[in-house]
C-alpha cells in the first residue's frame, strides 16, 4: 500500500516510464516525496525505495549526498542566498546578514513556525546578476540588503501559496545576468524545484 495520494502515484508511474532502468527515477521520486510531505521524511524515502525496488538504506545514501534533498523539517519558504565568489564580491555577506536579522533565522536553520528556512548556497549560476538569491529555487537577481529585508517581510505577510521567479524579480530584484524574456506562470509551493513532470510545480495563483 502506497502512502502517497492517487495523483502522486500516477505521477510516479509516469516518471518511472521515462527511464530505461528504474533506479534512475530515485532523484525525481525524492522530489515527489518532498512535494507530498513538505520535506524529505523517512517514510517518504522508504516509499521511494519500494517504488524503485532498492532498500531504504540505499535511498538514504543517495539522498544524503545531495544538498537539495532536505531530510530535516524545512520551512515552506527556503531562502538560499549565494555567497560564492562573484556574489561575495558584490556584497552577499551583508545581504545574508540582513536576511538572517529580518527573519530571525540563522543560516542552516528554520523558524519555529516552519515558515522560513535560511541557507547560504554555493554558486547558483546567476553571477551576472549578483547578489543572487533563491526562494524554493525560484531565482531573484540583483538583491540588496534592503530588498532582502523586504523579501522576508513579504514572505511573512503575504504568505504566497507558491513563489514564482518572475514575480519576485519584479518585486525585489535588480541587475539580471541577461534579459529573461517570457515569464513562467508556475511556482514552487515548498523547498523543492518547481518542475511540471515531477508534479512539483504549482500554478501561481497570482
Amino acid at each position: 500500500m502506497s502512502i502517497w495520494s492517487e495523483s502522486t502515484q500516477s505521477r510516479a508511474k509516469e516518471i518511472l516510464a521515462k527511464y530505461p532502468e528504474k533506479r534512475s527515477a530515485v532523484m525525481p521520486l525524492l522530489y515527489l516525496a518532498m512535494a507530498e510531505d513538505g520535506w524529505l521524511t523517512e517514510e517518504g524515502m522508504t516509499e521511494v525505495a519500494e517504488w524503485v525496488g532498492i532498500t531504504p538504506a540505499q535511498v538514504q545514501s543517495v539522498a544524503s549526498f545531495y544538498t537539495m534533498f532536505k531530510r530535516e523539517r524545512t520551512g515552506k519558504y527556503l531562502v538560499s542566498l549565494c555567497t560564492s565568489i562573484s556574489c561575495m564580491l558584490l556584497g552577499s555577506d551583508d545581504v545574508l546578514a540582513a536576511i538572517e536579522d529580518e527573519s530571525g533565522v540563522p543560516h542552516g536553520e528554520t523558524d519555529e513556525e516552519g515558515l522560513i528556512s535560511v541557507e547560504h548556497a554555493e554558486c547558483i549560476g546567476a553571477c551576472g546578476g549578483a547578489v543572487a538569491c533563491q526562494v524554493n529555487y525560484e531565482l531573484i537577481e540583483g538583491l540588496t540588503a534592503e530588498k532582502g529585508r523586504e523579501l522576508v517581510r513579504w514572505l511573512k505577510k503575504a504568505r504566497p501559496e507558491a513563489v514564482n521567479t518572475d514575480e519576485m524579480q519584479e518585486l525585489f530584484g535588480g541587475q539580471r545576468s541577461f534579459e529573461w524574456a517570457l515569464p513562467s506562470d508556475v511556482g514552487a509551493a515548498g523547498p523543492f524545484p518547481a518542475f511540471e513532470p515531477y508534479g512539483t510545480a504549482t500554478k501561481d495563483p497570482q
Binding site: 533506479r23 534512475s24 525525481p28 549526498f65 545531495y66 524545484p193 515531477y198
Partner: peptide
C-alpha cells in the same frame, strides 16, 4: 532530468552515477 545540488555531478562519470540514481 534534474540534479540535486552537487557540483561534482558536472564531472561526467559522477553525472552518469547520479543519472543512474
Amino acid at each position: 532530468h534534474l540534479g540535486g545540488g552537487a557540483y561534482i555531478c558536472g564531472e561526467e562519470t559522477a553525472l552518469i552515477n547520479s543519472l543512474e540514481g
